[in-house]
Design a protein around this nucleic acid. Sequence first.
RNA 1: GGCGGCGUAGCCAAGUGGUAAGGCAGGGGACUGCAAAUCCCUCAUUCCCCGGUUCGAAUCCGGGCGCCGCCUCCA
Length: 482
Amino acid sequence: MRVYNTLTKKKEDFVPLRENKVGMYVCGVTVYDYCHIGHARSILVFDMIYRYLKNKGYQVTYVRNFTDVDDKIINRANKEGVSSKEIAERYIEAFYQDVDTLGALRPDVEPKATEHIAEMIELIKRLEDKGIAYKAGEDVYYEVRKFPEYGKLSGRSLEEMMAGARIEVDEKKRDPLDFALWKASKPGEPWWESPWGKGRPGWHIECSAMSMKYLGESFDIHGGGMDLIFPHHENEIAQSEGATGKPFVKYWIHNGFVNINKEKMSKSLGNIILIRDILSRWDAEVLRLFLLKTHYRSPIDFSYDLMDSEKESLDRLYRTKEKVEDLLAKKTSASADEETQKVVESIKSLHNSFFEAMDDDFNTALAVGKFFEAAREFNRFVDRSGASEAQKALVAEAMDAFMKDVQDVFGILQKPASLWFAVPEDGLPLPKEEIEKLVAERAQARREKNFKKADEIRDYLKSKGIVLEDRPDGTTVWRLQG
RNA sequence: GGCGGCGUAGCCAAGUGGUAAGGCAGGGGACUGCAAAUCCCUCAUUCCCCGGUUCGAAUCCGGGCGCCGCCUCCA
């Protein structure tokens, strides 16, 4: 398996530090508001990576934190006149609602910053002892000039950054790029006792402290959105390696951004789309497929139209799944004849290509394409050949094996097809009884060759948004349009 | 100003030296009483433009145009 490493700017062979074990840390969210589509991408990209590593047999320890002490939380709390704790708890709960609906697997550990203050203080003390951190007033800063490799992740030198610095010069800092490890708390802010007085941690130190606590001083994968490369991850490296003298992370993985109409989503542009808004309109699997069809490092442009067309794609895969389910239900023991064998081999070969694509830096777009090709092979055999049900079932088994991995790794096609196509009991354009009565009437009319009446009924239902599908066995199924 | 990315069909998108995956939409056909679904064919002689390297380039090099991100909180 090869993985693109932000640190080296190259694809590298993936070799975990400890055989068969993978430690993975992903920067979670600051809990001061509802999560948006950008968070969803990061969550789902790393969910896919976590799922794939497990699927390949690695023993993965996945850690994702909550930043529950931060300026933005404090501001929100003050604005609402409640405690920071209350804000954090509220949005942690909202976060869980969102990720659960998205079908993202829970990480193995989900540490909160406020529960690891002691570890952070410990780490800051280590840096202080080494002379890398300095106290300035009640604050403690990291002295970037003491870490010669500062800038290695983001690919810039201190000199370049100094030249282009738009950072306001803080009198207390020795250097404008120095960053806070510990901040003295102002009145009304949460605080903890520390060797430097009452205060709270800087943002970057929590990830160094928590990742090393749960994964060790050196671990395999650290991920997050592209925007975290600088300064957050750069500072994490400086803190961790500065303290331990050991390489912090082997592979840095960063996902691309979600844009709205080619523009970055931002509060100031007012183009934020929340996860919960999307999930009220589409099933989470539609969003997953939408994201999967673009490589995780590329920017992706979100739009409702694109989601609609992705829904069409998924429906198609579910129709295929429906046929697989039906065939497996009545499977019999038979050995494959020559034609069947050919199709089975072809599907297996595509199944294999799926893994090859995934092994190449998680090329989900290619991998999804392979599954669509297999679906076509399967449909062609099942709907067109004169093969027996037993032979078709053998092909369905090969397709099912492929689909199991797609479900496992991509988190799509997880429902029974009947559930996917199930119509809601309420909110139907017509009462369910009436629809079924009309469908039965039409069936009668068709038996009597009264096609005029049959078509009238079908057109009427169509005008109400109900589509009929006559099966070869004489039955008729109905579905809601799009 | 510094650093980085991108530009492939109507739309989305994979492909980084060997002759353009896949999906959505569209057109034609098979199937069907007619449809729907499914399948087949079709839909980029060409990958932003101009030069160059090469037997061979969407892929490498040089120049240009356009879009975007980071350098400040940010997934």
